[in-house]
Nucleic acid binder design. Structure first.
Length: 867
RNA sequence: GCCUGGGUGGCGGAAUUGGUAGACGCAACGGACUUAAAAUCCGUCGGCUUAACGGCCGUGCCGGUUCGAUUCCGGCCCUAGGCACCA
């Protein structure tokens, strides 16, 4: 590498040169090496939307810092990159601009790949692939047919959002205020046959394995546990009066059964549908329910409504007639689609009962609520049964046991484990996705496509005009001749794009394998040692990927049970917003560059003007960078202005990885300033041209020992922050502190030069993961040769950390009153004496009795006094 | 509505196991250098109070545990993410 450490710091020049060198020598290309510890570092691959956004930059910088750190610690590090290339935006772009999704995607990938390279991420580009490559998706088609053979795949009807004008299925995102985003038509709920994967077969393992995943954030594990939603309870049957049928429900509270005063079923429940056949009011109600969204969030926020079915169930304990209602809040997708309502002890049942005047009967008495006040709401806690016939007066466990046993004996119920988790609906009625490898013969019987004729290629030549399913009109694709001479019709649905992202990490281990889905290399690299990505994936993507990996394990494709050893969830990147109220009630947003902000004396923003017309604009909240809020910062512009190192340094310094990061242009300036000043300090240091024979460990002056202690303390701190705490902001702060110490040390003797040389060599190595380009140049500038990426991470000299004198805080009754110096070896008693002797401490202890003295070794002395 | 986080100076954040609240940086202000500006360097920087030493208050709000609470517990407010077809 050429000697760049001359005159001015020019990031563009050095970064491009360093990157070219890495590329020419394939520095980041790796192979399996059983002699070294492997480290598989993975960042969630991007959807190729067009350009990188700041969220990508942040995500990939975190991954690159961790990768480079582990490589400097001697591990065999693999860091791959690829593209989650199927999805809705490509189809939308196709409809809007007339570009083909394949071409649009390819172009975006090319641009974004260049951006990633310009940011200096150490990826093994030889492993790159896009999920829309047939070489990739053929294997997921193959695996789908394996799962089909094993009975883990099935077809049944499920609801979709149907746009009656465009005659197409809409994603939840495409439904705005109940209307299709393009047509504006009221969206309907429609039941169509779709493909499902039996993730519920793995519910128990997906749940229990979480207990062993101690390197995952507790919040993510809790979210997954609640999503899987295991509950134990009683499945019981209520017979229906006259009709002779039965209504099955599930309850976790059999102890409240005597309080069941009505039943509620989902609008799609067969008995509701049946009852509506000769009841036009009921039919109308069911139709209204049908127009409601498929989104659970919206269903739960709706006003709770219902209608009686004019049917009665027989209470299995009391023989009482209880009315059956249909209710819009009962979900057909959970349990049996029917519930027994106990309004006294369930808040939602209570509200519904109040609204429709249904009886509320208290059957549980909690310790602190001897009387149930009906007007305040349900009492959902546990307690002792009352008004429950022969089962009255029992504690929860006893009541649960005896009621379950009684109903089991009478064959009216059985204990059951129930999960909230539903099977994974993988069918999508879209073009730009992986075709589902299924055919239907003339009788409509399904046939899985044989493995040796895969892939089922997604045809390129289709008509994309926004009308329904292009694949159903592509006759070359649609019609197939079977080997036995019969003809068949292909499935026209494609896979959910979560299908592709559920196993890409395994394929990165052996992307060139052309005869198998995976090979032995996957077992060398898997599991991923650290997986980094947005918190928004906490449940869906991460749960699907865990399930998929277990299914692959059971098919003998991998040996590990969990795909991701550690998970690091990254916060969003935000920026302030500026807007004016538009005519149609919608806000018009202005980008921060268009706005001039006026600050008060304290630096608080007080008002903002649009530069263009010098009139006021409103200052909005700080929100996630997005096109709609017009508050995005283009990483490319920053790279062009400051260089990749500054952008990387700022994104790591501004906040810990899990936090949302609030973007500040002036703070970016600060990171740039730090690199410039470090450059100048090392340039000046080099110019001293001092020859020193002093060994750093041999210095004796207090000042130099102190300086050297700062150097080795920084090594300890930064190492711990990167490897254990994943707190890159404090790691960088510690490096900045060390640089400040080195810069302010006002001596230029040869011994000082030697310590400074040691200090800068440490600083440059500690900075290498964050700002790899400038670090490489400074490393060479300090007289060292070779690739910094393969230089060992510094190790602290323990003797440099030793101290003789400690500072202790002295508190009186928990309030800080003094700082005292004591020898390291001081006993507890000696510390107490020094503390009590302090003048300011004495002001607060005089005339008081010392009741107790607490000494926390190395930290503080707390003197507790009183009268 | 349900599940899960978060709330600390003007701002981003620090305080790692209950032990000095505000590290590091930004902004702001004062000064040096300069014909001037930029850049750079030095200093101040939570509020109130004091001549000074120091003192009092202060980590969203209310209450509790403790010698000691940003940290633990209970309740509340605000805010972000997810809720199964955005990825």
């Amino acid at each position: 590498m050429q000697d760049f450490l001359k005159d001015r710091y020019d990031p563009q020049k050095i970064e491009v040169a360093v990157q070219k060198d890495w590329h020419d020598r394939e520095v980041f290309k790796v192979t399996e090496d059983p002699s070294r510890e492997k480290f598989y570092c993975l960042s969630m691959f991007p959807y190729p939307s067009g350009r990188l956004h700041m969220g990508h930059v942040r995500n990939y910088t975190i991954g690159d810092v961790i990768s480079r750190y582990h490589r400097m610690n001697g591990k065999n590090v693999m860091q791959p990159m690829g593209w989650d290339a199927f999805g809705l935006p490509a189809e939308n772009a196709a409809i809007e601009n007339g570009t083909h999704p394949a071409a649009w995607t390819k172009e975006n990938i090319a641009y974004m790949r260049d951006q990633l390279k310009r940011l200096g991420f150490g990826y093994d580009w030889s492993r790159e692939f896009a999920t829309c490559d047939p070489d990739y998706y053929r294997w997921e088609q193959w695996f789908f047919t394996k799962l089909y053979e094993q009975g883990l795949v099935y077809r049944k009807t499920a609801a979709v959002n149907w746009d009656p004008v465009d005659k197409t299925v809409l994603a939840n995102e495409q439904v705005i205020d109940g209307r299709g985003w393009r047509s504006g038509a009221l969206v309907e709920r429609k039941e169509i046959p779709q493909w499902f994967l039996k993730i519920t077969e793995y519910a128990e393992e997906l749940l229990s394995e979480l207990d062993t995943m101690d390197e995952w954030p507790a919040a993510v594990k809790t979210m997954q546990r609640n999503w899987i939603g295991k509950s134990e309870g009683l499945a019981l049957k209520f017979s229906i009066e006259n009709e002779g049928g039965e209504l099955e429900v599930f309850t976790t509270r059999p102890d409240t059964i005597f309080g069941a005063s009505y039943m509620a079923v989902a609008p799609e429940h067969p008995i509701a549908v049946q009852a509506a056949k000769n009841n036009s009011d009921l039919l109308t109600f069911l139709e209204v329910c049908k127009s409601q969204s498929t989104s659970e969030a919206l269903v739960e926020k709706m006003e709770k409504k219902g209608m009686p079915l004019d049917l009665y169930a027989i209470h299995p304990m009391t023989g009482e007639r209880i009315p059956i209602w249909v209710a819009n809040f009962v979900l057909m997708t959970y349990g049996t689609g029917a519930v027994m309502a106990v309004p006294a002890h369930d808040q939602r049942d209570w509200e519904f009962a109040k609204k429709y005047g249904l009886p509320i009967r208290q059957v549980i008495q909690t310790e602190d609520d001897s009387v149930l006040v009906n007007d305040l709401g349900a009492v959902s806690g546990y307690g002792v049964t009352v008004n429950s016939g022969e089962y009255s007066g029992l504690a929860f466990d006893k009541a649960y046991e005896s009621i379950c046993s009684h109903l089991e004996l009478k064959k009216l119920g059985h204990r059951q484990v129930q999960y909230r988790l539903r099977d994974w609906l993988v069918s999508r009625q879209r073009y730009w996705g992986c075709p589902i490898p299924i055919m239907y013969d003339d009788e409509g019987k399904e046939i899985a496509v044989a493995g040796d004729v895969l892939p089922v290629l997604l045809p390129k030549d289709v008509n994309l005009d926004g009308s329904p399913s292009p694949l159903s009109k592509a006759s070359d694709f649609l019609n197939v001749a079977l080997p036995d001479g019969r003809t068949a019709r292909r499935e026209t649905d494609t896979f959910d794009t979560f299908f592709e992202s559920s196993w890409y990490f395994s394929r990165f281990c052996c992307p060139d394998q052309s005869t198998k889905m995976l090979d032995e290399r996957a077992n060398y690299w898997m599991p991923v040692d650290i997986y980094i990505g947005g918190i928004e994936h906490a449940v869906l993507h991460l749960l699907y990927a865990r399930f998929f990996h277990k299914a692959m394990r059971d098919a003998g494709l991998v040996t590990s049970s969990e795909p991701f050893k550690r998970l690091l969830t990254q916060g969003m990147v935000c920026k302030e917003t500026y807007f004016r109220d538009g005519e149609n009630g919608r806000k018009k947003y202005f980008s921060p560059e268009q706005v001039e902000v006026e600050l008060d004396a304290k630096g608080r923003p007080v008002s903002a003007l649009l530069k263009e017309d010098q009139l006021a604009v409103n200052i909005g909240p700080v929100e996630k960078m997005s096109k709609s809020k017009n508050n995005g910062v283009d990483p490319q512009a920053l790279i062009d202005t400051y260089g990749a190192d500054t952008v990387r340094l700022y994104t790591m310094f501004a906040a810990p990885p899990e936090h949302t990061l609030e973007w500040s242009d002036s703070a970016v300036e600060g990171s740039s300033r730090f690199l410039k000043s470090l450059w100048r300090l090392i340039l000046d240091h080099k110019a001293e041209n001092s020859f020193s024979t002093t060994k750093p460990s041999a210095v004796t002056s207090d000042e130099l020992l102190g300086l050297r202690r700062h150097i080795h303390q920084a090594i300890v701190k930064v190492t711990d922050d990167i490897s254990r705490r994943y707190k890159f902001n404090t790691a960088i702060a510690a490096i900045m502190e060390l640089v400040n110490h080195l810069a302010r040390f006002d001596s230029h003797e040869s011994a000082t030069h030697a310590i400074r040389q040691e200090g800068f060599e440490v600083v440059v190595r500690l900075l290498a993961p964050f700002v790899p380009h400038v670090s490489q140049i400074l490393w060479n500038g300090l007289g060292q040769s070779g690739d910094l990426i393969d230089v060992s991470w510094p190790i602290e000299d323990k003797s440099a950390l030793e101290l003789d004198i400690l500072e202790l805080v002295v508190q009186v009754n928990g309030r800080k009153r003094a700082l005292v110096k004591v020898p390291v070896a001081a006993t507890k008693k000696e510390c107490e004496e020094v503390g009590l002797a302090d003048e300011n401490v004495a002001r607060f202890t005089i005339g008081q009795t010392v009741k107790k003295i607490i000494v926390v070794p190395g930290k503080l002395i707390n003197i507790v006094v009183g009268d």
